[in-house]
């Protein structure tokens, strides 16, 4: 099915991308932190949509569950609990904004410039139809990537310990 020379797949991708980018910009530009977080959730949904387009259903679900569900809720809690929703963030100066804008623009320009050539050269490696399935993922994770998988557990543990360490109320004199 073609519309204006693009396939449906491409249309969906375009619209989804546009929405995602708009939401991402909203995250940055909105003044209220709570709004920002909510826009972020929307952005994550957009990204999850991309996963679906790539035939990675499991990843899409996980993405929504973890980021939009768990992490964002945590963010919201923190913001609300600490009453950060007030618009009291110190304003950046104009010059720094301009510099940031210019730099961002340049970065975009450069990355686009680099990736522009990609379409011609990229080998069209079409993944198998079941590439995004839990089963496939599991097979890969527990065969080829067993070791990283196990080590990631250590990584997470370390992060956990770190979080506790930071969060723990100091009872005695500083040990460090």
């Amino acid at each position: 099915m073609n519309l204006l020379g693009y396939s449906l797949h491409q249309w969906v991708f375009g619209v989804l991308s546009f929405i995602t980018i708009v939401f991402a910009l909203m995250v940055v530009f909105s003044r209220n932190p709570v709004n920002s977080v909510l826009y972020l959730v929307l952005t994550f949904f957009g990204i999850a949509g991309h996963y679906l387009l790539l035939n990675a259903q499991f990843l899409a679900i996980v993405h929504i569950a973890v980021y939009a569900g768990a992490i964002m809720v945590l963010f919201l809690f923190v913001i609300m609990l600490m009453n950060l929703n007030a618009d009291d963030e110190p304003q950046k100066t104009m010059s720094s904004k301009i510099i940031a804008g210019v730099l961002g623009g340049l970065l975009l320009f450069v990355i686009v410039g680099v990736l522009r050539q990609t379409a011609q050269i990229l080998p069209q490696t079409q993944g198998a139809a079941d590439i995004g399935l839990v089963k496939t993922l599991g097979m890969v994770l527990f065969n080829e990537f067993l070791f990283p998988f196990e080590i990631i557990s250590i990584l997470l543990l370390a992060a956990l310990v770190g979080a506790i360490m930071i969060g723990k109320r100091e009872t005695t004199e500083s040990k460090l």
């Binding site: 950046k92 720094s96 510099i99 940031a100 730099l103 340049l106 970065l107 450069v110 990355i111 410039g113 680099v114």
Partner: peptide, 20 residues
């Protein structure tokens, strides 16, 4: 941090621009 990031970003842009 802001200026550090800017400096770093600028460097990266420069480098990438040069490969372009």
């Amino acid at each position: 941090i802001g200026s550090y990031l800017m400096a770093m970003a600028f460097s990266i842009i420069l480098v990438l621009f040069l490969i372009l």
